[in-house]
Design a protein around this nucleic acid. Structure first.
Length: 869
RNA sequence: GGAGGCUUAGCUCAGCAGGUUAGAGCGCAUGCUUCACACGCAUGAGGUCGCGCGUUCGAGUCGCGCAGUCUCCACCA
C-alpha cells in the first residue's frame, strides 16, 4: 500500500493517471456485438482555437456521460475532432501574414496561401487536443477527425453533388449579407443586429411631369444612387393619382417609376419608399414584382460604384457628401432622430452591406420538412425540451441557406464554368472538360463552402460516410449531442436535416443543451472585455476534477452560469476531503479484499442503506440528464454521511481492531469512487489504484446499481433516531458553552431501548457522554438536570450548575410554544375531513405521526420546565 | 412585433413528478491544536420562495395576470 500525502496534489496525479488510461486503451470503443453502442461526437472546436470555459463545460458534460455509459457496460464512443473554421482561421493567418511580412493573401496566391494555412493548422491543431486531455476527456483518439481531412472532404463533395442533382442546391442572384471587411458573404445566422442611433432623412423626389413631388424617408441616403423606383401602398388614397407616373432621381437625374406594392407600410414615414433593389432585400423582392432595374452602387469593399462623381468613395463618406449635395440643391426636407437595427458581422462587427450577388444556396423548404417532423414526433428530443420550441420556430421560418463564402480556406465548391458555352459542371471528380460541350476551356468556382456545411455532416462523415463502414453501421445514429443553445441554428438544425436527407435516419436521439459561462457579474466572457478565464490555469491551480465539478454543479440545464474561482476552491476542498477519507480508511486497513462482513452492525446497515438510496437516485438522475443533481447528491453523501458520520462512528471500532468496520468502510469507499468517477475521474482513479481492488482500472469498473439486499429502511430510521439525539446534545452543549472536556453521564429515557442501547457507544463518542444509562422511563427526580428532548428520547444530564437557569427556562418556553403551534397545525390538518379522505394514506399517516411526536415533545418540554422550578 | 428564461438566505445558485421543519457553496458569528483532513470539526444567526388572483385537502412547485430583468428570433424604408 502506498503512503498517501496529507494534501491531495492534482498536479502530481493527473497526467500520470491520464497516461494510465491511454496505455490501457480504455478510450477506444470496439464494435463489440455483445455490447450496446453509445456514441457522442464532439462539437469540433476550431482547429487553431484555445480551450475556453465554454468548451470546458461542453466537454465535461460529454465526458461524464461517456464515462457513465462505459461503466454501465456500453461500447462508449466519444469521437473527437476539429473544425477548420473558415473565416476565423483565414483571418488569423492573413493577420499574421500582414503583421510579419506585410503581405496579403493575394500577394501569395491561392496555393501558397493555403500551404501557409495548413502550416498554421499543423502548428496549432495539437494545442486544443492537448487541452482536452488536460480536462480528462476520454475521447477515442484513434478515431480523431478533421473537417478537411480526406474522408470529410469526400463527404462534403458527395453531399454537394447529390443535393445539386436533386435540385436542392442552386446558384442565384440574391440579396446577401456582405461583410466588406472580411470580403465574404455571410449566412443570415452569421449576422448580428445592433440597435444604433441614426437618422431618418426625408428626401424630395420631383415628379417628371412637373405636377408635384414625392417625399421618401430613408436611413441610408447613399443608396439613393441605386434607386430605380418609388413604391407606395395600393390602398393609400394620398398617392392614388401618382401611381404609374415617374419621378426624377435627384443628383442622378434618372427617371424612375412610381409603383404600388403591399409591402409599403402606410403608417411609417411618409408612406413613400425609395426602391434600391440591389441593396435591400425587400426592395429586391418589390423590384422583381415590378420589373425594376437593378443597379449595384456599392462594391465588395464598401465603396461606391456606378455612381458617377461619387465613385470610389467609402459608403459612409459618400453619405456625408450626398447629404450635403442634396441639402444644397434643396432636396432634403427634414431629418429625424431614429434608432434602427444595423446588421453587423458576427466576426469583425463591421456593418453588413446587403447587396445583390451571385451565390450558392441550399433550398431549405423540402429539407426542413423532415427536420421538423423528427423533433415534433419526438424522434429527437431536446433537453430541456423548451429548446425544441426555439428550434421549431426557426425551422418553420427557415430561409434558403447561403453556402458560398468568398474565402480560400475551406472546401472549394466543386463547380466548373465553361468559358465557351457557359454551362456549369458540378462533379464528384475534378472536372477537366465541360460536361455539355466538351470544351477544356473551363474554370473552377473560386469560392469555398460555409464551414457549417461540413460540420452539418459531422455525425456520419466522421464514421466513414459516404463509404459503408462498419463503424457507421455500429455507431450511427449517435446518442447524445451536447452543445450550447447559441449554436442550435448554426449547427444542430443543419445536422438534423442533413442526417435525415443523407442517412434517412436522425443523427442523434437527444440534444442536451447547456447555457453559457459568464463572468461573476453575469457578463459574457470575451477577449476584448478582458474578463476571460483560462481553464488551463484553473486546472493548474485547483485540478481538473475541481474545475469539472464546479462546472457541472450549481446550475440547472440550459441556464447560464456564472463562474466563480471561489467555487473551484470549494471543490478542491471536496477533493481533498475525499482524499483524506480514503487515506484514513487505508491507514486502518488490514483486509486485502473488498467484501462485506457476514455480520452488519446498526451503523453499517445505516450507511449501506443510505448508499443504496444514493445509487438509486443517481442512476435515475443520469437517465434524465440531471448531472448536476447527481453530482450534488454524491457530494453530500461523501461529506455528510460518510465522512462526518460513518467515519467518526467507526473510529472506536477500528481502534479495537474490528475487521467488519474496515470491510464496510472499504466497501462504501469503493462504491463512492465508482459513483463519483464520471465527475472526478482523476482523483477517484488514483485512490482506486491505492486501495484493494480486483479490476484493472476504475474507468472500466461497473457503475453501482441499486441493491435491494443492502437496503435497510428500518435500521436506517433507527440510526437516525440516534443521530438526532447526538445532534440535540451537541447543540445543547454548544448553547451552554460546555467545554469538550466535560463528559457528563447521560440518562436516556425512551420507548425504543434496544435502539438506544445499541447507540450508547455513539453517544459516548459523538456527544461527549461520560456514560449512558438507557431507561424505559424518565427518572422520578430530575431536578437539577438539563433535559434534551427528541422525537424518540429524553436525555438528562446533571449539569444544572453549568447553566443559567433563567436562560434555560426561556429557551424551553420558546421551544414549547413552537411545539404547541405545530400541534395546532397538525390537528387542524387532521380535522379537515377532505384531507383525511382525499390525501393518500401514506401522507395522512405521516401527519398523524408528526402530531404524535409533537405532542410527546410538548409533554416532555412541559415537564422539563416544571423541573427547573 | 414574436418566443423563451430568470426573480428563493448578505452574494451565487439548487429544489427532479405539488405532500414532514425550503437546501448548498461562499460569507458571517461562537467554540474546538478531538490521533484522515484547519483545503478541517461542531454549533448557530439569516428566507412572508417578486406581487396578485386562481386550481387543490394541501402551492416555492401547477394555471392566469402584473412588475422587474435578461436572452433569442424577426425587422420597420
Amino acid at each position: 500500500m502506498r503512503e498517501l500525502p496529507k494534501q491531495y496534489d492534482p498536479k502530481k496525479v493527473e497526467s500520470a493517471v491520464y497516461q494510465q488510461w491511454l496505455d490501457g486503451g480504455y478510450f477506444h470503443a470496439r464494435r463489440d456485438p455483445d455490447k450496446k453502442p453509445f456514441t457522442i461526437v464532439i462539437p469540433p472546436p476550431n482547429v487553431t482555437g484555445q480551450l475556453h470555459l465554454g468548451h470546458a463545460v461542453d466537454e465535461t458534460i460529454q465526458d461524464v456521460l461517456i464515462r457513465y455509459k462505459r461503466m454501465k457496460g456500453y461500447s462508449a464512443l466519444w469521437l473527437p475532432g476539429c473544425d477548420h473554421a473558415g473565416i476565423a482561421t483565414q483571418i488569423k493567418v492573413e493577420e499574421d501574414l500582414r503583421v510579419n511580412e506585410g503581405l496579403t493573401r493575394f500577394d501569395l496566391g491561392r496555393e501558397k496561401f493555403l500551404d501557409r494555412v495548413w502550416d498554421w493548422k499543423n502548428k496549432y491543431g495539437d494545442r486544443i487536443v492537448q487541452q482536452l486531455r488536460t480536462l480528462g476527456s476520454s475521447c477515442d483518439w484513434e478515431r480523431q477527425r478533421f473537417t478537411m481531412d480526406e474522408g470529410c472532404s469526400k463527404a462534403v463533395r458527395e453531399v454537394f453533388c447529390s443535393l445539386y442533382e436533386k435540385g436542392l442546391i442552386y446558384k442565384g442572384k440574391r440579396i446577401i449579407n456582405w461583410c466588406p471587411h472580411c470580403t465574404t458573404a455571410l449566412s443570415d445566422a452569421e449576422v448580428e443586429y445592433e440597435g444604433k442611433p441614426g437618422h431618418l432623412w426625408h428626401l424630395r423626389y420631383p415628379l417628371s411631369d412637373g405636377s408635384g413631388e414625392v417625399v421618401v424617408a430613408t436611413t441610408r441616403p447613399e443608396t439613393m444612387l441605386g434607386d430605380t423606383g418609388v413604391a407606395v401602398n395600393p390602398a393609400d388614397e394620398r398617392y392614388k393619382d401618382i401611381v404609374g407616373k415617374t419621378c426624377i432621381l435627384p443628383l442622378v437625374g434618372r427617371e424612375i417609376p412610381i409603383v404600388a406594392d403591399e409591402y409599403v407600410d402606410m403608417a411609417f414615414g411618409t408612406g413613400c419608399v425609395k426602391m434600391t433593389p440591389c441593396h435591400d432585400p425587400n426592395d429586391f423582392e418589390v423590384g422583381l414584382r415590378h420589373d425594376l432595374e437593378q443597379i449595384l452602387v456599392i462594391d465588395d469593399n464598401g465603396r461606391i460604384i456606378n455612381g458617377g462623381k461619387y465613385d470610389g468613395l467609402d459608403r459612409y463618406e459618400a453619405r456625408k457628401v450626398i447629404l450635403r449635395d442634396l441639402e444644397e440643391q434643396g432636396y432634403l426636407v427634414k431629418v429625424e432622430e431614429h434608432i434602427h437595427n444595423v446588421g453587423t458581422c458576427y466576426r469583425c462587427h463591421s456593418d453588413v452591406e446587403p447587396l445583390a450577388s451571385d451565390q450558392w444556396f441550399v433550398k431549405m423548404e423540402p429539407l426542413a420538412k423532415e427536420a421538423i417532423r423528427v423533433v415534433e414526433d419526438g424522434t429527437i428530443k431536446f433537453v430541456p425540451d423548451r429548446f425544441a420550441k426555439t428550434y421549431l420556430n426557426w425551422m418553420h421560418n427557415v430561409r434558403d441557406w447561403c453556402i458560398s463564402r468568398q474565402l480560400w480556406w475551406g472546401h472549394q465548391i466543386p463547380a466548373w464554368y465553361c468559358d465557351d458555352c457557359g454551362h456549369v459542371t458540378v462533379s464528384r471528380e475534378d472536372a477537366c472538360r465541360c460536361e455539355k460541350c466538351g470544351s477544356e476551356n473551363i474554370h473552377r468556382d473560386p469560392d469555398v463552402l460555409d464551414t457549417w456545411f461540413s460540420s452539418a455532416l459531422w455525425p456520419f462523415s466522421t464514421l466513414g460516410w459516404p463509404d459503408k463502414t462498419e463503424d457507421l453501421e455500429y455507431f450511427y445514429p449517435t446518442d447524445v449531442l451536447v452543445t450550447g443553445y447559441d449554436i442550435i441554428f448554426f449547427w444542430v438544425a443543419r445536422m438534423i436535416f442533413s442526417g435525415m436527407e443523407h442517412m434517412k435516419k436522425e443523427p442523434f436521439k437527444t440534444v442536451l443543451i447547456h447555457g453559457l459561462v459568464r463572468d461573476p457579474h453575469g457578463k459574457k466572457m470575451s477577449k476584448s472585455a478582458g474578463n476571460g478565464v483560462d481553464p488551463i490555469e484553473v486546472i493548474d491551480q485547483y485540478g481538473a476534477d475541481a474545475l469539472r465539478f464546479n462546472l457541472i454543479t450549481g446550475n440547472s440545464p440550459g441556464n447560464d452560469m456564472r463562474f466563480y474561482v471561489e467555487r473551484c476552491e470549494a471543490m478542491r476542498n471536496f477533493a481533498n476531503k475525499l482524499w483524506n477519507a480514503a487515506r484514513y480508511v487505508m491507514m486502518n486497513l488490514t483486509v486485502e479484499k473488498n467484501a462485506l462482513p457476514a455480520e452488519l452492525k446498526l451503523e453499517d446497515k445505516w450507511i449501506l442503506s443510505k448508499l443504496q438510496s444514493l445509487i438509486g437516485s443517481v442512476n435515475e438522475n443520469f437517465d434524465k440528464y440531471e448531472l448536476g443533481l447527481a453530482a450534488t447528491k454524491i457530494y453530500d453523501f461523501i461529506w455528510d454521511s460518510f465522512c462526518d458520520w460513518f467515519i467518526e462512528i467507526t473510529k472506536p471500532r477500528l481502534r479495537e481492531g474490528d475487521v467488519g468496520a474496515q470491510q464496510v468502510l472499504l466497501y462504501v469507499l469503493t462504491d463512492i469512487l465508482r459513483l463519483l468517477h464520471p465527475f472526478m475521474p482523476f482523483i477517484t482513479e488514483e485512490i482506486y489504484g491505492a486501495i484493494p481492488h480486483e479490476g484493472e482500472a476504475l474507468i472500466v469498473e461497473i457503475y453501482p446499481e441499486f441493491d435491494e439486499a443492502l437496503s435497510f429502511p428500518k435500521e436506517e430510521a433507527d440510526f437516525e433516531s440516534i443521530m438526532e439525539a447526538v445532534k440535540a446534545v451537541r447543540s445543547r452543549r454548544a448553547e451552554m458553552n460546555v467545554p469538550p472536556s466535560k463528559r457528563p453521564h447521560i440518562t436516556l429515557a425512551t420507548e425504543k431501548p434496544a435502539v438506544f442501547e445499541a447507540g450508547k457507544v455513539y453517544m459516548a463518542n459523538l456527544a461527549y457522554a461520560g456514560g449512558v444509562n438507557v431507561v424505559p422511563q424518565a427518572p422520578a427526580d430530575t431536578a437539577g438536570m438539563v433535559t434534551v428532548v427528541t422525537g424518540d428520547a429524553k436525555l438528562f444530564m446533571p449539569m444544572a450548575e453549568l447553566v443559567d437557569l433563567d436562560k434555560e427556562r426561556e429557551r424551553i418556553t420558546k421551544e414549547l410554544e413552537k411545539a404547541q403551534k405545530d400541534i395546532a397545525n397538525q390537528e387542524r390538518k387532521l380535522a379537515n375531513e377532505s384531507f383525511v379522505s382525499r390525501a393518500p394514506e401514506r401522507v395522512v399517516a405521516a401527519e398523524r405521526d408528526k402530531l404524535a411526536k409533537a405532542q410527546a415533545l410538548a409533554e416532555n418540554l412541559a415537564e422539563s420546565l416544571k423541573n427547573l422550578g
